[in-house]
């Protein structure tokens, strides 16, 4: 028997909630790890971070982080986060949620939060399907993919998340994968320090859903993230994405614009 060791990141996680509910081979553990490691490396005060999530596998992330945290309703993480971010500008508001939550049911809130430039970091785990309900197709599923609700192959066009968010006004836009852990952590560190609406898409394998249905093993899925990705500094609309052929990854946008909160406080100062 080995003695039980304290986890290196134990202070940053709710250890009494672990182990987490995610499947073996799922990328969400890597995203969570990258997030808390970024907080640790920046020596940020855990009392001054609020982690918000929606519903789905990624939505559970907020429950494992040792910050104030809010597990909200499906698709609505961003308006909850907006209420928090504007009310408490001294805190860093971070949203961790999935592609279905943020871009299907919550798509409207996403483009409007980006448009307003509300100060928050959004980490979007993109696994190309609805994992928790059993791998149905969603707004990111590649065409012709077989899923339980597209048994003849998906006939819909997917969103390019980074292009959509950038065109909506986000001031920081990146795409990484759970294979690129150092790049991912650095992007999160940048996002945590950024003032403004920051968005990081993280390509993350759903081994139980997307993987199994497409006859891909967890190892093969991770290999795809290594072999099919190209780091490029391009305009987000040119950051194409097809998990089976090529995924352009990188930091695409980093600009500074006044945030909603900053403009609001200016208005208040004038009104007084």
């Amino acid at each position: 028997m080995t003695e039980e060791m304290e986890h290196r990141l134990g202070d940053y996680l709710r250890m009494d909630r672990l182990p987490h509910i995610w499947c073996a081979g799922c990328g969400l553990g890597i995203i969570l790890h990258s997030y808390v490691e970024a907080i640790q490396e920046l020596s940020m005060d855990l009392d001054k971070i609020v982690t918000v999530s929606g519903i789905g596998c990624a939505g559970r992330a907020s429950g494992y982080v040792n910050t104030d945290a809010f597990h909200t309703t499906h698709g609505r993480a961003l308006p909850f986060a907006t209420g928090i971010s504007i009310s408490r500008p001294d805190l860093k508001t971070v949203v961790i949620s999935g592609d279905g939550d943020l871009f299907a049911i919550g798509g409207n809130h996403l483009i409007h939060a980006a448009r307003r430039n509300v100060d928050m970091l959004v980490i979007c785990s993109n696994n190309f399907n609805y994992g928790m309900t059993g791998a149905q197709y969603g707004p990111t599923t590649p065409p012709n993919t077989r899923t339980p609700t597209s048994p003849y192959g998906s006939i819909e066009n997917p969103f390019n998340l980074v292009a959509l968010v950038a065109s909506s006004g986000a001031t920081m836009v990146s795409r990484w994968t759970v294979y690129h852990v150092y790049h991912l952590k650095n992007a999160i560190k940048k996002g945590l320090q950024k003032k403004g609406f920051s968005f990081i898409e993280v390509i993350s394998p759903c081994t139980t859903g997307f993987g199994r249905l497409n006859r891909l093993t967890p190892i093969e899925m991770m290999r795809q993230l290594r072999d099919n990705t190209k780091i490029k500094k391009v305009h987000p609309t040119e950051a194409t994405i097809d998990p089976h052929t090529e995924i352009i990854i990188g930091d695409f946008v980093d600009v500074r614009k006044p945030t909603y909160g900053e403009i609001l406080r200016e208005l208040e100062a004038k009104a007084r």
Binding site: F70, F80, S87, R88, H112, L264, A271
Partner: peptide, 27 residues
């Protein structure tokens, strides 16, 4: 504005009430 309160017109009522709850948890 003169009182330091936050008024925000949301994209829909779903977002409006969600943000109200977020503000409530913010004190």
């Amino acid at each position: 504005p003169a009182l330091g309160g936050t008024f925000i017109q949301f994209e829909d009522e779903i977002g409006a009430i969600a943000s109200v709850i977020g503000a409530s948890f913010s004190g």
